[in-house]
Design a protein around this nucleic acid. Structure first.
Lengths: 245, 245
DNA sequence: GCACGTCTGTTACAGTGCGTTACAATGAAC
DNA sequence: GTTCATTGTAACGCACTGTAACAGACGTGC
């Protein structure tokens, strides 16, 4: 995996800075955030592999934030809290936290637990789509993630190849977020362990994008959904609705 | 996922029984084991989704066992220990444990942590199916593992050859889990003791899969259940219900 | 406006993976 | 020995996917 990118969420500026520098010094990329709004802002702009979330965020409630994040994305979340009581821990786990670390904590232990969570989740990368097959709707289209098939607004069914389907899943899981070719390639090549060179990908992604466009864009020459972000990558610029089965 | 199958490893019989019954009462399948040998015996015979491993196993060392298991299989492991000191925790995480629970623990918290690890969704590559013959149901079909016979939703009975039947057992024991040809071949060739050569298999599995498809797929050209995972292997993509006799 | 370099879209082509068929080898039943 | 079912091997063709090459689009500087 590339260097893991952590989002450190704490409303206490001092604590936040301390954590960020500590994590950076230990080989992570650490991004700070102080509120739910900041979390969403960061997530909409960049890749994040794990969120380290303080439960006590002033007037906001970390557990509720965790629940909302979990409902939308499949991001690993580690809760940090001064509340070590069992019922608080339970609340955290119930909303889908991956680990719950009570303050005060040994920094080395925190590192180890973060690494354990990342290790566990390395098969569902940051751009990862949830494994549960689902049906998605976007701009009149329907995508059946189980059958690898899209249905156009007019009802025409088009089968996707395995790779086209995975690409579409990655895009649907990250609407309005510009994705670089490297990120897309990494998300597509979830081999479980072997980390391929994150380097030169050739034009494989471009060609793949072109093939997907030819199937889901009315006019592939002027794509409306799968748009190019020049010198960056690609964006799926359409609202997406997920319909869990 | 099917009901998660946990392997509870503790040399203290009382503690082991308590854990097993507690976990079973909470919706898990819990299998007991008291030593590394027993762990390996169970793993060779059945699917296990997570191992709950006590660190103090009489003369054996849980951390070392954890390291060895981790080296061979990609199974989630939760360590349980009376040693809560930081250096012991670190040792556990370093050998690849997914979580470390210190005794005494709140049972509810233990449940929550087990669920959190399972949620991160590593699938067990231990493909073994139980030897006990049984009847399975999937997508309207019925499979009688004792008579090597499947019955279609419409009631049509189809006999399977020995190898087709074993293949189906392996698949049924691992629904929704992509299996490589090597894994399938290894699971088929389990003679009960000796490990067969995990080497080059030619196209034997492909042909076998094709033959099974021709018997259980309505349209073998577009398989709905026994699907291909390109460059990976095969998946049985249907929910399976096991009806023990 | 024009020239130039960079980035992107498209096409053709080659390599790989997979499904299918035919055939050979094996073994059990008679 | 004969027959039949079972199982592996070989070969062919198709679908999928990455690479290479070229042409067009875009941006920058003049």
């Amino acid at each position: 995996m590339a260097i893991p990118r952590l989002l450190v969420v704490d409303d206490d500026g001092e604590m936040r800075e301390m954590l960020v520098t500590f994590l950076q010094r230990n080989g992570f990329i650490a991004l700070p955030a102080a509120s739910e709004a900041e979390i969403l802002a960061v997530l909409s702009q960049t890749r994040v592999d794990l969120i380290l979330l303080d439960v006590m965020l002033g007037c906001e409630n970390g557990v509720q934030i965790c629940a909302r994040l979990r409902a939308e994305r499949d991001l690993p979340i580690v809760l940090v809290s001064a509340l070590s009581a069992d019922q608080h821990q339970m609340a955290g786990y119930e909303v889908g936290a991956d680990d719950y670390v009570a303050k005060p904590f040994n920094p080395e232990i925190l590192l180890a637990r973060i690494r354990a969570v990342l290790r566990r989740g390395r098969r569902s990368p940051s751009l990862g789509y949830r494994r549960t097959a689902a049906v998605w709707r976007f701009a009149g289209w329907t995508y059946d993630g189980k059958r690898d098939e899209v249905t156009s607004p007019s009802g025409y069914q088009v089968p996707l190849s395995g790779r086209e389907s995975r690409l579409l899943k990655v895009l649907l899981a990250n609407p309005h977020v510009p994705l670089t070719r490297e990120e897309i390639a990494a998300a597509l090549d979830v081999t479980g362990e072997g980390e391929a060179a994150p380097e030169a990908q050739g034009r494989a992604i471009d060609v793949l994008v072109g093939r997907l466009r030819s199937k889901i864009e009315a006019n592939p020459r002027q794509p409306q959904m799968l748009r190019t972000e020049r010198a960056v990558g690609y964006v799926f610029g359409v609202d997406v609705e997920r319909m869990d089965a």
